[in-house]
């Protein structure tokens, strides 16, 4: 077992345990913090897979942006003094049937397919090739995503403001 395997198992364990905790803890704040750990684990796996720039973006966008937004959402929608921040579960039986079927199908598909993989040497950094792709072949999607973010910004502000 070399060092890469050890790092993979470390980050995989962090990801699995914290993803389990996100959906199983009763406290919403604990869920949010475990989601942060999940994002960290996935960022580590990105580094291991050779996607260095994506790992940084994952940390900046998810941990620095979306998670803070979620924590603000938790703060604004729970009466911390009166009502406790605990929640219950619902729909256990239909949900477990659906999840069991879904998990069986997905895992069987992943295990039984003969995945093709080439052992090409990945470039040391992916920033340059990503930038070239983004500015040449996918420039239209890039521009459309900018418009989408603008619309989302205006929409979120107009939905959340007081009437």
């Amino acid at each position: 077992m070399n060092i890469y395997d050890l790092i993979f198992y470390l980050f995989a364990t962090i990801t699995v345990l914290s993803a389990l905790a996100v959906v199983s803890t009763k406290n919403i704040i604990y869920s949010a913090y475990n989601l942060m750990l999940t994002f960290f684990g996935v960022a580590g796996l990105y580094v291991l897979l050779g996607a260095d720039f994506l790992a940084i973006v994952q940390l900046i966008v998810y941990v620095g942006g979306i998670l803070i937004l979620i924590l603000f959402g938790v703060m604004l929608t729970n009466k911390v003094n009166g009502m406790p921040i605990h929640t219950e579960v619902t729909n256990i039986i239909p949900a477990s049937i659906t999840i069991g079927l879904f998990a069986g199908i997905v895992l069987a598909f992943f295990m039984n397919t003969n995945w093709k993989s080439v052992t090409t040497e990945f470039p040391a950094t992916t920033i340059q090739s990503l930038g070239k792709l983004l500015m040449n072949e996918y420039i239209l999607i890039f521009e459309l995503l900018g418009v989408l973010l603008l619309i989302a910004l205006i929409g979120a502000a107009s939905i959340a403001r007081k009437q």
Binding site: V16, V23, I28, G73, V74, V89, N91, I92, A95, I99
Partner: peptide
Amino acid sequence: LSAFMFIMGVIGVLTRKNAII
């Protein structure tokens, strides 16, 4: 691993009561 994460997400969407979770 990613299938496990996805299944955890499905469990959360189907069974939790709080909209933020």
